[in-house]
């Protein structure tokens, strides 16, 4: 059963990562890109969790926590220093 679960989750997470990357590339504003990068980090953490669950080890746990620290620090920093540089508002 585990190889089937691994295949399904690999396909689903690849599609999700592709969607988040499309939003990073297309995203009209900086905050949209920050949000999509946060989601991409969450997807990466989900992949690490699935690797731990399928292969039954805990090696990735510290990496998971540090990924959430990186996402936190990154989005707080960018949100603190964001400025409005668009020509016309509400275009999003």
């Amino acid at each position: 059963m585990m190889p089937l679960v691994l295949t399904i989750t690999a396909v689903v997470l690849s599609l999700a990562a592709a969607g988040a990357i499309i939003r990073i590339a297309r995203g009209p504003s900086l905050l949209d890109r920050v949000l999509a990068a946060d989601v991409l980090l969450a997807i990466l953490g989900a992949a690490l969790c699935i690797d731990m669950a399928v292969n039954r080890h805990l090696n990735n746990l510290m990496l998971l926590v540090s990924i959430s620290i990186i996402g936190f620090v990154g989005s707080v920093t960018v949100a603190r220093f964001v400025a409005d540089r668009r020509k016309q508002p509400n275009e999003s």
Partner: peptide, 12 residues
């Protein structure tokens, strides 16, 4: 695991 992966797809 499958439902947790579908959450990521929903977010995307």
């Amino acid at each position: 695991m499958v439902v947790g992966a579908l959450m990521s797809l929903g977010a995307a």
